[in-house]
C-alpha cells in the first residue's frame, strides 16, 4: 500500500501546483527516494512514464564509465547528449561508446558552459539529467522554465540504466 500512497501524493501535487511547484516537489521527492535502494525499480517506472524525452549533460564520471551503454541510449529518438567543454565523448576506448553514425547528430558539443545552458533551453526536453558536482557549477535558476524535471544525480550509471 505504501508505494500506491506515494503515487497518490504525487498526483495531488500535480493537481494543486503550478509547473514550478511540480518541478521542485518532484526533484525533492526523487532525491529523497534515490537514497532508498528498495524503491529504485518503482521510481524508474515512474519517471520513464512521466518524462518521455531526455537531455543528458555528459560529464567526466559518465564519459569515463565503460559500463553505460551509450549506443543503446542514443538509439532512443527522444534522447540528446550535451557534451560540456573539456569532456571527451565518445571515447573509442570503451566498447559501449561506439555510436551508430546515424545517431551522431544527437551528440551536441559545446565550447562554453553558457553554450551548454543555451542548448538545454533550446531543446526543451522533458527531463534534464546531470551531475552538478561533476559539472562544477550550479544549474541556472531559470532552467526550470525549460524542462519539466531536473534529475541531479550522483551516479549517472544508475540513472541511465532505466533508459534501456
Amino acid at each position: 500500500m505504501a508505494p500506491s500512497g506515494r503515487r497518490t501524493s504525487t498526483s495531488r501535487l500535480i493537481g494543486y501546483g503550478a509547473a514550478l511547484t511540480i518541478a521542485i516537489g518532484t526533484t525533492a521527492w526523487l532525491l529523497w527516494n534515490s537514497s532508498k535502494d528498495e524503491d529504485k525499480d518503482m521510481r524508474a517506472t515512474n519517471t520513464s512514464q512521466l518524462y518521455k524525452s531526455k537531455c543528458i549533460i555528459v560529464t567526466n564520471s559518465a564519459s569515463d564509465s565503460p559500463n553505460i551503454k551509450w549506443a543503446k541510449i542514443l538509439a532512443d529518438p527522444n534522447v540528446v547528449l550535451i557534451i560540456p567543454p573539456k569532456v571527451e565523448f565518445p571515447q573509442s576506448a570503451y566498447e559501449n561508446h561506439v555510436v551508430d553514425s546515424k545517431d551522431i547528430y544527437k551528440i551536441i558539443h559545446c565550447n562554453t558552459m553558457a553554450g551548454v545552458w543555451a542548448c538545454v533551453k533550446s531543446l526543451k526536453k522533458d527531463e534534464l539529467v546531470l551531475n552538478s558536482n561533476d559539472l562544477g557549477e550550479n544549474v541556472p535558476v531559470d532552467i526550470v522554465r525549460y524542462v519539466k524535471h531536473i534529475s541531479n544525480v550522483e551516479d549517472m550509471t544508475s540513472v541511465l540504466d532505466e533508459v534501456e
Binding site: I107, I108, H109, C110, N111, T112, A114, G115, V116, A118, C119, K121, S122
Partner: peptide, 16 residues
C-alpha cells in the same frame, strides 16, 4: 538560444 551561442562565440555548439 542560437543568439546566445553566437554572442558567446560558441560556434561548435551553434553548429552542433
Amino acid at each position: 538560444e542560437l543568439g546566445i551561442l553566437m554572442r558567446e562565440g560558441d560556434k561548435t555548439a551553434y553548429d552542433s
